[in-house]
Design a protein around this nucleic acid. Structure first.
Lengths: 157, 157
DNA sequence: ACACCGTGGTTCGAATGTGAACAACCCGAT
DNA sequence: ATCGGGTTGTTCACATTCGAACCACGGTGT
């Protein structure tokens, strides 16, 4: 085992900033959505992804991957949204096991209602704080980070 | 209410990257720490902050703010760490209400043990994925984001 | 047709995180 | 001295999250 390469000052600043910003932004948005739309951020994200899907429906597994959450976690949240009437379940015709979650009329309406306030909060907390160059670098950098962490671990290949 | 300014493509990429990277990195580190050190990331962070404090001790409220967590959440985690013998509680002499959490010998040892693996994971997941320029921009950008979100809400003033 | 392995979802138990309500306490103004 | 406001930690009830166990099914090879 090689000697540990500790983080230098800039690296530490980046790491601390990443952690802090993550928590703070998450907290702010959670609060904003709960207050203004009665949704958790996770629930809002589910509605967004369904809304963006071709026919407003996605397979559970597919949706779970996009949300970056566990299957069981998704089952729970979809159940909540179903109780609230914002999402429906439809079984898949080609695969009996498969389940589609689909946006209901009401779900779409709630999303339309909630979106402006959410976008405004995202701008205020993150986007509008950055200038264009920072924005682009951030997108590129974190995009690459995500890409590497997604899917199977190709760490050592 | 002005018309909603939706996110353009770059802004959306930055936002999505931020969200995805946040989840993915958090998940990876959580797993790495649990596997190699038997600690949650929160617990690890508590040890780190205590270790960094002048005398290895911090007031609960102070610690909670640094961790960006709720007071109640901290009470819980410190209790867990106390059960494990990694942290001790000491009441404050100047303020009866005050409680200091302090790193124990064992806590310091566990931290020393866990740190190298954790730093390596942080490098692999985030730091070493970025080049120096990205790193610096990220640190600056997210530092500013954090700074604005910390402290009191001056949203409407 | 049948045995097998991988996949898709759900269920279950355990661990956390949060805000509200509390009780005790510090401090400054009256 | 004491009254009111803000602090400090904790307790509590509740909402989530996650991984492991599980069940049912799809596809493939024989």
């Amino acid at each position: 085992m090689a000697q540990t390469r500790w983080l230098d000052e800039q690296e530490m600043a980046a790491w601390r900033g990443f952690l802090a910003a993550g928590h703070l932004v998450a907290r702010r948005l959670e609060q904003q959505l709960k207050d203004e739309a009665g949704l958790s951020h996770t629930q809002y994200e589910i509605l967004v992804h369904l809304s963006a899907a071709p026919d407003g429906a996605l397979r559970m597994a597919d949706l779970a991957e996009r949300l970056i959450t566990s299957k069981s976690g998704l089952t729970y949240q979809v159940a909540q949204l179903e109780k609230a009437g914002l999402v429906g379940r439809r079984s898949c015709t080609s695969d009996v096991r498969g389940v589609f979650a689909e946006l209901t009329e009401q779900g779409a309406a709630v999303l339309r209602e909630a979106a402006p306030g959410h976008v405004a909060a995202v701008r205020e907390a993150l986007i509008d704080v950055l200038d264009r160059e920072q924005l682009v670098v951030l997108a590129e950098a974190l995009g690459e980070v995500s890409r590497r962490l997604r899917g199977p671990d190709r760490t050592g290949e």
